[in-house]
Design a protein around this nucleic acid. Structure first.
Length: 457
RNA sequence: GGCUGGAUGGUAGAGUGGCUAUACAGCGGUUUGCAAAACCGUGGACACCAGUUCGAAUCUGGUUCCAGCCUCCA
């Protein structure tokens, strides 16, 4: 069984062949930390978390690096506006990002490199580029000369002439060619800066990923991931820098790009003011619900976020956990051997999570309908094992339906009173208590095993 | 203008040259003190036009529309 991945570089699905099957490498462009993380930041973290888990399922060793870009003009500007320390500002939002995506069931990567901790490597790489004639210093800046790299534009499938025709490239007097991009730029005294052969300054926008990939994963890596919007210029420039500095034909053998999130009919963007923050959604919905929604479309497709779709994810997971709750006493074995072949082959086909979810629904239905102990065990094991692979269903099913800030003792007490009333067929008192709990946002369900409760959504 | 992707039932969202995707919602039923949950059954789709084919929603060509990137952006 092999994994097939859609490779942006070639524009088609390809069988994944690692450079070294005993040590697979992947890199994801993490966030620039200048604000609270939004659900657009969450999508790549979640979908490539699934890829990470799938690779670990297939290969003995996977090294996953996900960076934090903590030096950038956006950070500088935001911190300056608020009059706060730039370094602390970046640290604060890096922590928030990690906390937020952890809520979504995202595993920590093996390596989380920070740009500011790789300044020597960045400077070294720029020096190599200058020595080899791919870059030049001018007025305190260092620029990459795009005309020196004949494959420039091959990842994003565009050519330099077209870009110039767009006339949207930043033209600066010190540039030899309008499409040349910055590797290093000067910092004045109130900006973060490091000493370099070109004076005190800071790295440009793309070089940090090239330098961090090289120092942690090697000159050529297996898989490089990121949002679609990063293909150009970010990833195109990474390819140029890395291949030229390292003398390689390839920087990453497979380039994977996730689709964007739309808010209703509109794209989510700062200028439209419709940015949805993870922390805000997480106040209302559990992280797993958000994870489910993000994985309910194939990762390359645009996902439309709406109240309706998040609510639907909530209902679906409620049903899954309800089935697990109904089978609390059934023992189950969590292990890769209990993941149905259909699930793995769906994921192997370019992370077809919707198809995997269809299989999960079938398993859950089989569990709900199972009438023998051996079948119950079999399907529960399948459901939990599959969930383990996908980062789902690992919570306590009882707790799923409760919430933290609630007076459990009082509720249990009222339920006891009601059960007593019901035993005496005192229906009016029973209904009275039901109404009382309903006012407290508690839903009761009577079953042969007793009364159970959950928080109204 | 250049480059990428899309267009599937009320909604979300897969897939395949002929075989029920799946889920939510709907409808009918079983069950139930009430309520719910659960279970059973059920209707409903492949943007448009042409072509290839015994047969296409699935392949080919064209048309229309939508989105993204080309500028910081996941």
């Amino acid at each position: 069984m092999s994994i097939n991945l859609y490779n942006t570089k070639t524009g088609q699905k390809e069988t994944f062949t690692p450079i070294n099957p005993n040590s697979v490498t992947m890199y994801l462009c993490g966030p620039t930390v200048y604000n609270y993380a939004h659900i657009g930041n969450a999508r790549p973290a979640v979908v490539f978390d699934v890829l990470y888990r799938l690779l670990k399922y297939h290969y003995p060793k996977v090294t996953y690096a996900r960076n934090i870009t903590d030096i950038d003009d956006k950070i500088n500007n935001s911190a300056k506006e608020l009059g706060v320390n730039i370094k602390k500002y970046a640290e604060k939002y890096a922590k928030i990002y990690n906390d937020d995506i952890a809520k979504l069931g995202v595993l920590p990567p093996d390596i989380e490199p920070y740009a500011t901790q790789h300044i020597p490597q960045i400077i070294a790489m720029i020096q190599v580029l200058i020595e080899k004639g791919y870059a030049y210093a001018a007025e305190g800046h260092v620029l990459f000369a795009v005309e020196t790299y004949d494959k420039y534009g091959s990842l994003s499938n565009r050519n330099i002439e077209d870009m110039i025709a767009g006339a949207r490239v930043e033209v600066a007097p010190y540039k030899k060619h309008p499409a040349d991009f910055v590797l290093w730029k000067p910092s004045d005294d109130d900006l973060p800066g490091w000493d370099s052969p070109w004076g005190r300054g800071r790295p440009g926008w793309h070089i940090e990923c090239s330098a961090m990939c090289k120092s942690h994963l090697g000159d050529v890596i297996d898989i490089h991931c990121g949002g679609r919007d990063l293909i150009f210029p970010h990833h195109e420039n990474e390819v140029a820098q890395s291949c030229c500095a390292n003398d390689t034909d390839s920087f990453a053998n497979y380039w994977l790009h996730n689709g964007m999130i739309n808010m209703g009919q509109q794209k989510m963007s700062k200028s439209l003011g419709n940015i949805l923050l993870i922390k805000d959604v997480a106040e209302q919905y559990k992280g797993e619900v958000i994870r489910w929604l993000l994985l309910s479309a194939q990762y390359r497709q645009t996902v439309t976020w709406s109240e309706e779709s998040i609510h639907k994810s909530q209902k679906t997971l409620d049903r899954m956990y309800a089935t697990l709750r109904d089978n609390q006493s059934v023992s189950a074995n969590i292990g890769n051997e209990n993941i149905p072949e259909e699930v793995v082959s769906a994921l192997d086909d370019d992370l077809n999570t919707p198809m995997a979810f269809a299989e999960i629904n079938k398993i859950a239905k089989s569990l709900a309908k199972a009438d023998t102990d051996s079948n119950k065990q079999k399907y529960k094991s399948q459901l939990l094992s599959t969930g383990n692979l996908l980062g789902l269903f690992q919570q306590d099913p009882e707790d799923w339906f409760k919430s933290e800030d609630i007076d459990r003792d009082k509720i249990e007490q009222l339920i006891k009173e009601r059960d007593l009333a019901r035993a005496n067929k005192d229906w009016s008192k029973s209904d009275e208590i039901r109404d009382q709990l309903n006012d407290m946002n508690i839903i009761l369900e009577d079953s042969p095993e007793g009364t159970r409760w959950s928080v109204k959504k």
